[in-house]
Structure formats: C-alpha cells, structure tokens
Design a protein around this nucleic acid. Structure first.
Lengths: 233, 233
DNA sequence: GCAATAGTGTCTTTCAGACACTATATC
DNA sequence: GATATAGTGTCTGAAAGACACTATTGC
C-alpha cells in the first residue's frame, strides 16, 4: 500500500436524520440552491476535513445543519459511484441519525430550506429499495444525487435493527409510555403490532425501566412512564 | 455541497477474504514488506481509482491479490481515523468476501507472502470486538494498521448474517452435504448446532435444493448432495 | 356508573433444542 | 450382521399472536 500520486476523490458524510411525526417515519431534507440538482431535496452533508474522523464529521454536520448536539448516530453505508456527483468524484459515507420528534421539529422551525418529509415505503420485508419522500401535498419530492437510494437503505437498516437493538428509544423523549413506544415501532415497520407481545418483549428486553410516575391524558386510567435503562446504551 | 480546494484524503478498499479450513474460520493475510508496519500482516487492499466504483475496486483487488474471479462480496464498514495510516490520511472502505476453501487454498499455494490464518475469537454474542489471527505455531500474528478491528467487525457481521442470509453457501463447493454445511456454520459461530433443527431450517429456508445425487465416503449410508437454489442468489 | 384507555391472563401456534430412533451404505 | 454415518419422529419449552378480560382514572 504505497503512497501514490493518483488523484484523490472528495469524501463527504451524508446524514439521514429521521424521526416519527404524526404516525409517519420522517426525514429531514434540505432544498438545494446551487447546481447540480438545484431545487431538489437532499439529506444534509458536508465534506470530511483532512484531519477529522468520520464520526466527528457526522457529528459536526448534525450540529451545523440541524443545531443538534446529540443523537443516535450510526454509520450506514458508503456510496461511491463515479457519476453520482457530476462535478467531481465524491465518495460519501452515509450515516443515519435518530432523534425525538421535538428536537427535529425545532431544527426545522423557521427554516424555509429545511423540511421534515414523511417517507413513503413501497416495499416490505428484507429486499429493500429506494423510497419516496413526500411534500406538503402528499406529492413525492424530487431527490437529488442518489439520495433516494440512501434513504431506502436507511429505512431498511432501521427496520432490521428494530427487533434486536433499542433504536426506538432514540425516537421518543426521556420519559415515555409503552403506547408511545409501540406507535413509534409501528410507524417504522409500517404495520400494526400485537399489544401484549410488544409489551412483554420490551419489558423483558432490559432496555427500559419503569419510573414509577404516571402520564395523565384524560378521563381514563393513566399510563406508566418508562425511561431507557442504564445498560441500554 | 460546493466543490472545495481542501485537500482530499486517499481512499482504499480492504478485503477480508474468509473461508473455513479444518473446522476453523480463516482469513487471507498478506505480509507487508514496506514501512509502515513492515513485517506485520494485513488484509489485501488497494487504492480506489478516480473513475472506479467502490465495488469494482474490491473486485479488482480480489483478482489482483488472490487471482480470484468471483466471490460473495459485500461492503462491511468504512474506517477513517486520521492516524490509522501514518503516511497520509487514508480512508478505507472494508469489504468482506467469502470463498470455498479450495479457491482460497489455491490462491495461497506457492506464495510466501500470503497466509491462510485461523481466526481466534474471544467474544461471543453481539458485542463484537477485535480478534486475533493465528500463525503456524498457534501464536497470534501481529496485524498492521487497524486490521484487527476490521477483522473483528467482519466476524461479527458474518455471524450475524448467518441466520437470515445464505452466506454459508458461499463457503462450500457447488455440491455439498448438509453435514458439510452444518460444519461450516459451526466453525463460524464457534459452537455446536442441533442437527434436526439445522436441517429443517436449511430445507425450509428455500436456499438449497437436493440434487438427487449421493456422496459416498465409506462403509455407511451416503449423504444426499445439495446445491444452492436458483433464487438464493 | 360511564367512557376510554392501560395493562394482563390464557389459549393456541410456531419454532428450536434434546433425544432417541430408523435408514442405508460398505465390509 | 456389524459398523458408522445419514436422516427423522416426537417430546418439551420458549416466544409471539389472538382475544378477551380486568384495572384505573375523570367526569
């Protein structure tokens, strides 16, 4: 592995920032001003600095673009087709990040170039494939670069990890009810779940613990509030 | 995402070529001649050319370093710590590849700089961690760069995929018996499997189909030979 | 007591592990 | 028929879905 004089590609990180809003899995998209793909929507990204670890570049992008300090952040896949950016060779390391709805809504508020778009998934199971992101009228947004494919892979990975990792906890607040957690899971999977089975699985998993406090929403029995267990990280 | 004048990092692909030999999961390692890490063992890799897709670079490395035309090849993870190569910033996209024992043994034969090293895994379950590669005397080889970590992630991914993807089929020949397939699975997982359950799972999975032919090894009942089903890809 | 949601008990089905059994080849 | 491995039937236990039931709050 000697050093070479061959031209080096540019390397970026792209962030698929996801949350669940109104029962739908949503992603934060940014409207591009400049060419190429001006007017199209893309996931936020930035160039990796020459002395910066990849995870740090993702963290920095999270702070710059969304004003967010912390999130469940995980490397997704690296895309490097030569033609994916018409200007120069750009290899992008895609990350996906999960945030509670409130955090992401705050980041979007007052920013005309940002949108929280519901994701429309046509496939089911493990095959995967590209997905569409919907605009205000329910019409699909035009995504720039290969970001429809990146989004599709993010959804696929998220669905796959739901069963064996506490990723759903990153999408609810610090305190949450089992009903909220189940709703988040159902939004991600796109199908209804069985209530007793879900509750048993969650409680037995060791990911969550009861706080002893209750949530009161109206004229009916209040729900127990849970929080992420210490070891769930 | 404008173009920039910032310095670009070098990008490489590294290949974790694995097979099962003598009941042990093994990896193809190459002894480095040059500094840094001269005398250490590393997984084969090469620079990504400026007009070359990442998958094509992995495929080319497979052909150059191991003389192999085809294998189960899958992107693993991208490693980009600034200090991982002391010469310059090198971001590497790691792939793992699975080959039948015979193919990899042929690649190593007569090459003093290549070795097929058994992998010693200390952990179990899902945590993962770095692993050791063993030399002829059973002593651990000194691995260069961050390749112990790359190897560890490859083992973790391989173990994780065993249950729901037909990866084990890439490690046996075109025709194989269920006993051979089970032995491969056991070598990867590092634990014994239940025979009836394994057979039922394999047959029900749809990944394999019976050929109608038999394998005769001695004075006992011959085993049915199977092959990968068409849809198992 | 009524309404509405929270939470649970129980039955059934499905699947994997354990174990012992039957099957089939060569000698 | 002895032997060694291939392959299967059956029991058991764990986990999930279906469904109905009980529990608790405000009004």
């Amino acid at each position: 592995m000697p050093t070479t004089d061959y031209p080096h590609p540019a390397v970026t990180v792209d962030l698929v920032l996801m949350t669940v809003h109104d029962g739908a899995l949503c992603v934060l998209l940014q409207r591009r001003e400049a060419e190429p793909f001006a007017g199209c929507w893309v996931v936020p990204g930035s160039f990796v600095r020459i002395d910066e670890p990849l995870d740090a570049a993702a963290q920095r992008t999270l702070a710059d673009k969304a004003g967010l300090a912390s999130a469940w952040l995980e490397q997704l896949y690296t895309f490097g087709e030569p033609g994916r950016d018409p200007r120069e060779r750009v290899i992008t390391v895609a990350y996906f990040a999960l945030l509670p709805e409130a955090d992401l809504a705050a980041a979007v508020a007052g920013r005309a170039d940002l949108a929280l778009a519901p994701i429309a998934v046509a496939w089911t199971g493990e095959e995967g494939g590209p997905v569409a992101a919907l605009g205000p009228g329910g019409t699909p947004l035009t995504l720039g670069f290969d970001h429809a494919r990146i989004l599709g892979l993010a959804v696929q990975r998220l669905r796959g990890k739901l069963g064996w990792a506490p990723v759903a906890l990153a999408l609810v607040g610090e305190h949450f009810t089992l009903r909220e957690l189940q709703a988040v899971n159902e939004a991600i999977l796109g199908r209804a779940l069985n209530k007793p089975a879900f509750r048993k699985r969650m409680v037995d998993s060791g990911w969550i613990e009861a706080t002893g406090e209750k949530e009161s929403r109206g004229a009916f029995r209040p729900a127990e509030l849970y929080r992420a267990a210490q070891s769930s990280n």
